[in-house]
Lab assay of single mutants.
Amino acid sequence: MDVFMKGLSKAKEGVVAAAEKTKQGVAEAAGKTKEGVLYVGSKTKEGVVHGVATVAEKTKEQVTNVGGAVVTGVTAVAQKTVEGAGSIAAATGFVKKDQLGKNEEGAPQEGILEDMPVDPDNEAYEMPSEEGYQDYEPEA
């Protein structure tokens, strides 16, 4: 019985440690998101679009440190934060509304985080759909 109880105690310690790591990862992701939003706020009209992409990228980098179902929630929060940063930029006159959601080359930025393969159960990952990809044929 002692062996059984000791095993359960060790398992509990492992769960607590994993929860603490997840909590730490979420806190880091939130900190990076805040950094990115402050970065966007300090940019001029020309830099705002690039700044919004930076927020998304920093958040995406930190999301990889967070495991399990938390990833889905962090990704949703990050996307809403990026959308909010863009709205703030438009409201303050840093950028025109028609410039939001495009990178410096004018290509749409939507789907940055949505296409990231995420499995809350950590069982399997699927690649994003290939609808947006084109076949590449090298020139002879």
Rank of each mutant, 00 (worst) to 15 (best):
D2P: 01
D2S: 02
V3A: 02
F4D: 01
M5E: 00
M5G: 01
K6D: 03
A11C: 15
A11N: 00
K12M: 14
E13L: 02
V15Q: 00
V16G: 03
A19T: 02
A19E: 00
T22P: 00
K23Y: 06
V26S: 01
V26C: 14
A27W: 12
E28Q: 09
A29L: 07
A30C: 07
A30S: 04
G31P: 00
K32Q: 03
T33S: 08
K34Y: 05
K34D: 00
K34H: 04
K34W: 15
E35Y: 12
E35S: 05
G36C: 11
G41P: 01
G41D: 00
T44L: 10
T44S: 11
K45P: 02
E46M: 08
H50V: 03
V52Y: 15
A53S: 10
V55T: 02
A56S: 14
E57W: 06
E57Y: 04
K58E: 01
K58M: 15
K60P: 01
K60C: 09
E61F: 05
Q62V: 04
V63I: 10
T64A: 08
N65Y: 09
G67H: 08
G68D: 14
V71K: 06
V71P: 01
T72K: 07
G73L: 13
V74G: 02
T75S: 07
T75K: 09
A76K: 10
V77T: 03
A78P: 02
A78F: 14
A78V: 12
T81M: 13
T81W: 05
E83F: 12
G84F: 15
G86P: 06
S87G: 15
I88Q: 03
I88M: 10
A89F: 13
A91P: 03
T92S: 05
G93Y: 07
G93S: 07
F94C: 15
V95M: 02
K97N: 11
K102Q: 02
N103L: 08
N103S: 06
A107K: 11
A107D: 15
P108D: 10
P108I: 05
Q109L: 04
Q109M: 04
E110M: 07
L113T: 10
E114W: 09
D115G: 15
M116Q: 15
D119Y: 03
P120T: 11
P120F: 09
D121F: 12
D121W: 05
E126K: 11
P128G: 05
E130A: 05
E131I: 10
G132P: 04
G132H: 07
Y133M: 08
A140M: 07
